[in-house]
């Protein structure tokens, strides 16, 4: 077992501004369904000629054209056009429903000339989607405070960001140790957030083994901390692990369940899927990578068809030289 030393000497050599918690933002890597624009579908609506008939009309239409898959929509809206003689408009049906002939007799029911509208197909998941949706038709929105806060970059306070910085600094130290051995300068750290204990620190070893990326090394070091593991790391002093305090820990740690991973750059497909299999809790990375599987080429952590999903955040210490340079070099080359 190893003790992880303090990072003070390293910190002094760096420009304060690059480490300052205000100089970088922790940005969530959201699923496409959260980050995309609202999807609109065609529908018909009509003005209500006699306001007093509104509730009757709503009842009639709810029977004839229930908003089954459109339950996020309000049936009636205030007329958008201020000059209109009618105060309210009612949603009759979406165009899909109307493929079967619409039996609603608008003129007899007391409705004006039907017109086409665009309506949001699915409930809005973010405030941005809600605002987009509401421009077309009044929409209900069950706001998930965490998602809104995350999108505003407000999920983590300065103290939490300072802690992220410290963990990422450990990953950077390890990356440097690996670089000195001729490896790619990528480092990773696994932390137990319930005890703030560092479980594993590792760097890329792929010069010696094509699959020994920093994340794969850390997954194996976590296994070692639990009495398993399959590789030895004597050649790599920058790769080490701490066993959790097993006596005080209930339930016993199981693979990477509940652990956070900090890694200097976005994990590739191999590492991302290994983290799914390992049931990682959350992932924080510095910058994107060209074949990255957590936002760039795929979003493996958000896929509903896989049996484990987790939150991913990018941008941690993104302006620090070691984190940002590797990508710059690659961009210049391409």
């Amino acid at each position: 077992m190893f003790k992880f030393g303090t990072m003070e000497p390293e910190r002094k050599r760096l420009k304060i501004s690059d480490c300052d918690v205000d100089s970088w933002e922790v940005v969530p890597v959201l699923s496409d369904e959260l980050s995309q624009d609202v999807e609109l579908v065609d529908a018909f609506a009509a003005p209500i000629l006699d306001k007093k008939q509104t509730s009757k009309l709503v009842q009639q239409l709810n029977t004839l054209h229930p908003l089954t898959s459109l339950a996020h929509l309000k049936r009636v809206r205030a007329c958008k056009n201020k000059d209109s003689p009618h105060a309210l408009e009612i949603l009759i049906c979406s165009v899909n429903d109307a493929d079967e002939p619409c039996h609603f007799d608008c003129s007899n029911a007391g409705l004006g000339e039907p017109f086409a509208v665009k309506i949001p197909r699915t409930p809005p998941l973010t405030r941005r989607q809600f605002e987009q949706a509401s421009e077309h038709w009044p929409t209900c929105f069950h706001e998930v405070k965490q998602v809104t806060a995350a999108l505003r970059g407000e999920l983590f306070n300065a103290k939490q960001k300072a802690q992220m910085r410290d963990y990422m600094m450990l990953a950077i130290d390890s990356a440097k140790a690996g670089k000195d051995l001729g490896m790619s300068a990528v480092g990773a750290v696994v932390v137990d957030p319930s005890s703030d204990k560092v479980i594993a620190v590792g760097h890329d070893c792929s010069k010696d083994h094509p699959l020994q990326h920093a994340v794969m090394v850390c997954i194996d070091l976590v296994a070692k901390s639990q009495g398993g593991g399959c590789y030895t790391y004597e050649k790599y002093p920058g790769c080490k692990f701490n066993s959790p305090d097993l006596e005080n820990k209930t339930p016993q740690p199981y693979i990477c369940t509940g652990y956070d991973l900090y890694v200097t750059k976005e994990p590739c497909v191999l590492c991302a899927m290994a983290l799914v299999h390992s049931r990682i809790g959350r992932v924080f990375f510095g910058i994107r990578s060209e074949d990255g599987a957590m936002g760039t080429k795929f979003k493996i952590h958000t896929r509903k068809d896989l049996n484990h999903r987790f939150e991913v955040f990018k941008g941690v210490l993104a302006r620090l030289p070691l984190i940002s340079t590797e990508l710059k070099v690659k961009r210049r080359r391409s």
């Binding site: 699959l211 794969m216 997954i219 194996d220 976590v222 296994a223 639990q226 009495g227 398993g228 593991g229 399959c230 693979i255 990477c256 290994a274 299999h277 390992s278 049931r279």
Partner: peptide, 15 residues
């Protein structure tokens, strides 16, 4: 046995 969820048969064979 390894408590490492990445030790699928293919990974073992590659080693």
């Amino acid at each position: 046995e390894t408590k490492n969820a990445s030790r699928h048969a293919e990974m073992v064979a590659l080693d």
